[in-house]
Every structure is written in structure tokens, then in C-alpha cells.
Simulated assay, not measured.
Amino acid sequence: MKKLQDKVVIITGGAGGIGGGMAKAMVKEGAIVAIVDLNEETGKAMEKELQAISPQSSFIKANLMEREKLSNIIDTVIEKYGKLDVLVNNAHASKQKLIEDTTQEDIDLSFGTGFYPTFYLMQAALPYLKETKGSIINFASGAGLEGHSTQVAYVAAKEAIRGISRVAANEWGQYGINVNVISPVADSPGVREWAKAQPEYYEKVKNNIPLGRFGDLEHDIGPVAVFLASEDSKYMTGQTLMADGGSIMLH
């Protein structure tokens, strides 16, 4: 039996990057994955890739900033599959600016794509996760834990997500729902662009990772998500897991 056999999983921002890596890792462990993304072209391409392994997996096109429509994502999945086992809130967009240059529009983008969808999808998913004693996986960032310069809008939303994850872990533990957070360092498309633009800084950051490399999307970050979605982690909740090669060692 595979670790996620027949579990129904939603992954926001699942058309590529870390979301795509997790989706691939999960379908290989038997999951049925519904990826949610705004980009139809990449979404359809990932859907095809996933369906080669998990024929029932699917792509849902959605704009996460349309707050009033977020519950439709959950409704679509329940209508199609009849249940929900795992909600992965991965999507997030933001702009890098110094605090004094950050505008309300910048804050709204970060919270509108990251915090608010996480919160409202958690709310909408709750009745169905109660039925399956399911799992929620949210995303943090080392930028938030260390307060990286030019990341104020992103950090504010990420740390807010960590906060509500702990509250949900306390409130929903009685239903058998576990809520955990991954803080990754990964070889994402954004990191690759950054490596081209600032190769010296990229090498400096990479060299400060104790394991000496950025994580592979599917093979390093994916298995952490598989673990948190599986029965193996059912006695863990409210935790932030640092899938970052040792970049930040919590204590």
C-alpha cells in the first residue's frame, strides 16, 4: 500500500515550482491531486503529467484573489471526488521592496494570494476534513523567521499563516485534523532566475546551506509534504518543519 493511497489532495499553486514538485511526489504515493492555479497553460500541462500516473488527478483554474469564489474550489473537489483528505496552501506572490517603499498594493498582493486564500480555504475545507480526519499543510519561509530585508509584505503574510496554523492545530485537534507548516529552501524557477541575475550572491547563499545545495522540488520538498499528508505524521500538529538543508536550525 502506498502512503497516500486514494487520498484526495488540493494543492494551490500546483502548476509548477514547489507545488508541482509536491503534486508529483504525492501521485507517486497513490494520491489523487487537484492542482489549483491561475495559469491555464501550465496547469493543463501539469494535469497531463499527473494523469499519466494518477488518471483521476485534475487541474482547477482559479484566481485566489477572488475571495468570494474560494469556496468553489472546495465544492468542485467534493463534487468530483466525494471527499477531501489533504489541503495544501502553497500559492503566494509578492514583491521585494524596502519597508519605506512598500505600498498598500504590495501588502494586498501578498495577503491576497497567500494569507487570505490559506485562511478561507481552511474554513471552507473544515467540514470535509472533519469527516476524513484530514491534514492541512501550510507554507512559511526563512525570510519570515529571520526577517530578510526587502521582504516585508511577504514576511507579514507568511508569519500570519504560521500564526493561524497554530491556532487551527489547537482548535481542530479534537477532530483528528493535524495542521503543520513547511518552510522550504528549494531550487524553484524563481531561485533559478535569481541565480542568473545575481550569481555571486546565489553562490554565497548556497554555500551557507549546511547540506550545500538548494532542495529538489520533487525529491527533497515533496517527501516532506507526503509525510505530513500521510498517516505517519498523525501525532504531529502545529509544527514548522524546516525543509531547508539546515539553513535555519530552530531551538
Rank of each mutant, 00 (worst) to 15 (best):
K61Q: 15
A62L: 01
A62H: 09
A62R: 06
A62D: 02
N63K: 08
L64R: 00
L64K: 06
L64Q: 04
L64A: 07
L64G: 12
L64P: 08
R67T: 12
R67N: 08
R67S: 11
E68P: 13
E68Y: 09
E68S: 15
E68R: 11
E68H: 13
K69S: 13
L70Y: 10
L70A: 11
L70H: 11
L70T: 09
S71H: 11
S71P: 10
S71Q: 14
S71I: 03
N72L: 13
I73W: 02
I73P: 01
I73G: 08
I74V: 15
D75Y: 03
T76C: 07
V77Y: 11
V77D: 08
I78E: 02
I78F: 03
E79W: 02
E79C: 00
K80R: 15
K80P: 07
K80S: 09
K80T: 14
Y81I: 12
G82S: 02
G82D: 06
K83F: 03
K83Y: 07
L84F: 06
L84T: 08
L84C: 06
D85H: 13
D85S: 06
D85C: 03
D85F: 05
V86Y: 10
V86I: 15
V86T: 12
L87W: 09
L87T: 13
V88E: 04
V88K: 02
N90E: 14
N90T: 13
A91I: 09
H92A: 02
H92R: 00
A93C: 02
A93G: 08
A93H: 13
A93P: 03
A93W: 13
A93R: 15
A93E: 15
S94E: 04
S94I: 00
K95M: 12
K95I: 08
K95T: 15
Q96T: 06
Q96Y: 14
K97Y: 02
K97S: 01
K97P: 00
L98Y: 13
L98G: 12
I99D: 07
I99N: 00
E100H: 14
E100I: 00
D101C: 05
D101N: 15
D101H: 10
D101Q: 14
T102S: 12
T102R: 07
T102W: 09
T103A: 05
T103L: 13
Q104M: 13
Q104L: 13
Q104Y: 08
Q104W: 07
Q104G: 11
E105A: 12
E105Y: 04
E105M: 01
D106A: 02
I107Y: 14
I107F: 15
I107Q: 01
D108F: 02
D108Y: 04
D108I: 04
L109R: 09
L109S: 10
F111V: 00
F111H: 04
F111C: 00
G112D: 04
G112I: 03
G114L: 07
F115I: 02
F115E: 02
F115K: 00
P117W: 14
T118M: 10
F119E: 14
F119C: 03
Y120A: 04
Y120K: 09
Y120G: 09
L121W: 12
M122G: 15
M122R: 05
Q123M: 11
Q123N: 12
Q123H: 08
A124L: 06
A124N: 10
A125F: 11
A125V: 10
A125M: 08
A125D: 08
A125I: 07
